[in-house]
């Protein structure tokens, strides 16, 4: 932790990364304070992975400023790498080594004393429920266990910066809980950047950075982002929500409607909305749709991210 800067751990201005003719990062301005969990969200191909790899010091980049934990990404990043826990999208630990051997290997690379390794590894294996599988070859673990190991491995040295690229993709709900419980414990001492496509995880972040086309489109707390959405959200309850959704799409001001559970979620463009009461009346009166109850509801994370994807913001 000797290199940990007390000022904002990430300070980048006009960060660019080019792959051949494609500009994967097209000028990122980002200053992030420590002690929080920041979600990196956005559509496939937005540049999330490239941003995380760049911040981990794994890519040659161009920028006007590129400070991560006080190290310049354009210079020697050897000391930076020792202070970053990075989990790439695909499992990249040694499959033929056991769980504990992988942790030992990481510890030796970074010259972590044996006693500290034993204590920290024991604690992490306990928390992840991996303790009974410590001797199992990593390649033989289930998908969820592999990801828990990858995150535990990144946390081994208590790095001040954690960069996690979709660590929970394809992971079941209990393993996701355990991974998030680990991250919550690091929140006070580290900066955690995590890319995710789960709505509940995005909602649980302190802050969200939304990328599209290699640029930051939005940056704020989940509540701040919700307030920028230029949509109204309604729910129309009835016996056949798919039929309700189909009928609702015929209303001129409806931006989208989808059956989900017992109701149809109906999004209305704020600029075209005739007002809450009239929308509710129109939903109740949808011919033949059998709407039993219509309700106006608060914008949720799903609508927020969809609005960002479609550009329906104020």
């Amino acid at each position: 932790m000797q290199d940990h800067d007390v000022t904002a751990p990430i300070q980048v201005r006009n960060l660019r990364k080019r792959f051949g003719r494609r500009l994967a990062l097209a000028g990122i301005d980002l200053t992030i304070d420590g002690g929080q969990i920041v979600g990196v969200v956005g559509p496939d191909g937005a540049g999330k992975t490239t941003l995380l790899r760049a911040l981990a010091g794994l890519l040659e980049i161009e920028a006007d400023q590129a400070l991560v934990l006080g190290h310049d990404l354009r210079g020697d990043v050897t000391r930076l790498k020792a202070n970053v826990g990075y989990v790439p999208q695909s499992f990249s630990l040694h499959r033929d080594l056991s769980v504990i051997e992988n942790l030992r290997f990481t510890a030796r690379l970074h010259r972590l004393p044996q006693a500290q390794l034993a204590e920290r590894a024991g604690e992490l294996l306990q928390r992840t429920g991996l303790a009974p599988f410590a001797e199992r070859a990593s390649g033989a673990l289930s998908g969820g266990m592999k990801q828990k190991l990858a995150v535990a491995n990144a946390l081994l040295l208590r790095p001040p910066l954690l960069l996690l690229d979709e660590p929970t993709a394809g992971v079941d709900v209990m393993a996701r809980n355990e991974i998030w419980a680990m991250l919550e414990r690091e929140r006070s001492t580290s900066l955690v950047l995590i890319s995710t496509s789960y709505l509940d995880e995005a909602a649980a972040c302190d802050r969200l950075v939304y990328l599209d086309g290699g640029r930051i489109v939005a940056n704020g707390t989940p509540a701040e982002l919700r307030r920028t959405v230029a949509l109204e959200l309604y729910r129309a309850w009835g016996d056949d929500p798919r039929l309700i959704a189909r009928s609702a799409r015929a209303l001129p001001y409806v931006a989208g409607a989808r059956a989900t559970g017992r109701f149809a979620r109906v999004e209305v463009r704020q600029s075209q909305s005739p007002g809450t009461d009239r929308v509710l009346d129109a939903l109740r009166a949808l011919p033949g749709a059998g709407v039993r109850l219509a309700e106006a509801t608060a914008i949720d994370m799903e609508s927020t991210l969809l609005a960002l994807a479609r550009g329906t913001l104020t």
């Binding site: 956005g42 559509p43 496939d44 979709e166 993709a169 394809g170 496509s197 709505l199 798919r242 989208g256 989808r258 059956a259 799903e302 991210l305 969809l306 994807a309 479609r310």
Partner: peptide, 16 residues
């Protein structure tokens, strides 16, 4: 798995 929320929505409309 690993698909963004917008594409997931489109995908489920097709499945339905």
């Amino acid at each position: 798995a690993g698909v963004d929320v917008h594409s997931r929505g489109l995908f489920w409309e097709l499945i339905q």
